[in-house]
Write a protein that binds this DNA or RNA. Structure first.
Length: 547
RNA sequence: UGGGGUGUCGCCAAGUGGUAAGGCACCGGGUUUUGAUCCCGGCAUUCGCAGGUUCGAAUCCUGCCACCCCAGCCA
């Protein structure tokens, strides 16, 4: 793990003896959607920092707005954090755990004349707030007496008012150049049952009032959040400076993650789900942790990625190639190899005894012979990849051509004698001859074909569905554009592939289909004996290179 | 046009006055029965721009410029 500005700051605080009790951080998601890879950055930071400095990290649900939140998300978030490999131990909390204390602090602010109940409508408040360049106007209710404010606030809590009728506001400065300080709302009335507190409350504290107080109560030593909250820091500090709480965490901001060809806003992701542009939050094309998990990406790859992107304050949009690199690197040593033909072209070996078959040994992992091998059935009828044959090969083409030869990986060298086409001119079959003495491992032919291709014997091939995923969007930065014309309609392609039987018989969840990519048995749609494979990522393609 | 931020290679990102780390990508080359993996090598005389201070600046000062965020009773 590199040392970013936050870790440097924490290390410095530790060295200076500013944090006696050890580091305490928190990951504070609102349960209103699924976690995505941008959250993973924050999770890896908060939990990672706690681990590295011998501290602890809370998982705290920021459930202050029952209108947006749902229990489903609470479960999904816990699952995702755990899947990523982090453990909050007994430090699972909810902002709602502190509702009573929050309320008491609110009364305290009222008693100290630091807050007042405003009876203006939301619209009136908005207008009086001024603009970015014009100062706001004080509310006519700004100087109500402590007694009146207290009675009003208690009345709000008791349910005497309708939604929006009253609101508790901090009394700060309506002329502040920072609009967040223009008497921000601390409590609003919402006659909505809360998923955890039921109908105990009909007033709910806002983020700005809640977050800093929860941080203080939990003794968070470093409150890490994203850049858009930088303007809120004065308010964070104001609240803690004006209530009787003896702990004041520093808020430190870092930039959120941007990733090319996808979006990271929960709003847009939720829209993709509700508009059925994807199959759900766990659609393998989604940048959600649930989606990436279903795609077949392992948590180690995501953690590696989060370590490589760093933590800074600069706006960023990371290239997809970095994520892909992390995914491939993680899978390279782990995934057993197998062969699958995605777009089959029939090859008939004219000199191979009709009806004869044999078994050819093939390593599960060429760099790890200890993993053993499987037997690949071989016969006179084979499938090869359609794109591994070219009638008019481009320069440096290393596969089959009319009159050319290639090696069938772990098998024989074949020679293309005849190209059979249908009436449309489409190639339907290649009639080839095999070199009997070229069998892999006992090759005495002396031939040196320039290429090696994968294949599957027709008589033993199993047809399965393979889902080929591509980027969700056609443009690198889709935000702010119309989904309909930026969405990549080729982001999912389903094909019927021919795979070797050993893959079907294996319990391995992930394979590298040689020369094609890494694939994962879809955990939802696979049936015993009839798996559906998701393409996790393609193999790196060095085809452009010379040599 | 008010406030808050950010600008170092195509993308991330070190660097905190001593003469531009690293990763990804890309480009060579080697090994290879996966055009994969692996291995070697290349890749910013320059740090948004312009001045200034200094023996010396990406790092300090001044002035510009560009981009991002903020006017929810969302977080």
């Amino acid at each position: 793990m590199g040392t970013d500005f936050i870790r440097q700051r924490i290390g410095g605080d530790l060295d200076a003896g500013n944090v006696e009790g050890g580091i305490v951080t928190r990951f504070p998601p609102e349960p209103n959607g699924y976690l995505h890879i941008g959250h993973a950055k924050s999770i890896c930071l908060n939990f990672g920092v706690a681990e590295e400095f011998g501290g602890v990290c809370y998982l705290r649900f920021d459930d202050t707005n029952p209108a947006n939140e749902d229990e489903e998300y609470v479960h999904a978030i816990q699952r995702d954090v755990r899947w990523l490999g982090f453990d909050w131990g007994d430090r699972l909390t909810y902002a709602s755990d502190y509702f009573e204390q929050l309320y008491q602090f609110a009364e305290e602010l009222v008693r100290d004349e630091k807050a007042f109940v405003d009876s203006q409508s939301a619209e009136e408040i908005r207008i009086a707030r001024g603009t970015l360049t014009k100062p706001g106007q004080d509310s006519p209710y700004r100087s109500r007496s402590v007694e009146e404010n207290l009675e009003l606030l208690q009345g709000m809590r008791a349910g005497q008012y309708a939604d929006g009728e009253q609101v508790l506001r901090a009394r700060i400065d309506m002329a502040s150049p920072n609009v967040n300080l223009r008497d921000p709302v601390l409590y609003r009335i919402r006659h909505i049952p809360h998923q955890r507190t039921g109908d105990t409350w009909c007033i709910y504290p806002t983020y700005d009032f809640t977050h800093c107080v929860c941080d203080a109560l939990e003794g968070i030593t470093h409150s890490l959040c994203t850049l858009e909250f930088e303007d809120h820091r004065p308010l964070y500090d104001w609240v803690l400076d004006n209530i009787n709480v003896n702990f004041h965490p520093p808020q430190i901001e870092f930039s959120r993650l941007g990733l090319e060809y996808t979006v990271m806003s929960k709003r847009l992701l939720a829209q993709l789900v509700s508009d059925a542009r994807v199959s759900g939050w766990d659609d393998p094309r989604m940048p959600t942790l649930a989606g990436m998990r279903r795609r077949g990406i392992r948590p180690a790859a995501i953690r590696d990625f989060c370590g490589r992107i760093g933590v800074t304050k600069s706006d960023n949009r990371v290239e997809m190639s970095l994520l892909e690199f992390c995914v491939r690197q993680d899978l390279e040593a782990v995934a057993p190899r197998g062969m699958a033909v995605l777009d089959p072209l029939l090859v008939t070996l004219t000199n191979y005894p009709e009806g004869q078959t044999e078994e050819l040994g093939a390593a599960w992992h060429p760099q790890q012979p200890e993993r053993g091998e499987r037997q690949m059935p071989f016969g006179a009828a084979l499938y090869i990849e359609r794109e591994d044959f070219a009638e008019e090969p481009p320069p440096k083409y290393r596969r089959l051509t009319p009159g050319g030869m290639v090696r069938l990986r772990y098998g024989y060298i074949i020679h293309c004698d005849e190209v059979v086409k249908d009436t449309e001119g489409r190639v339907t079959e290649l009639r080839c001859s095999y070199v009997a003495e070229s069998r892999s491992g006992s090759d005495t032919s002396g031939l040196k074909p320039k290429g090696v291709i994968h294949w599957v014997a027709v008589h033993a091939a199993v047809q399965v569905e393979v889902r080929l995923y591509d980027r969700l969007f056609k443009v690198a930065a889709p935000e702010g554009q119309d989904l309909t014309d930026t969405l990549n309609d080729a982001s999912l392609r389903s094909v019927q592939a021919q795979v070797e039987p050993a893959i079907i018989a294996s319990d391995e969840p992930r394979f590298q289909f040689e020369r094609v990519g890494y694939f994962f048995k879809d955990p939802v749609d696979s049936i015993a004996g009839s798996p559906v494979f998701n393409r996790i990522v393609t193999l790196r393609d060095g085809r452009a290179k010379g040599r």
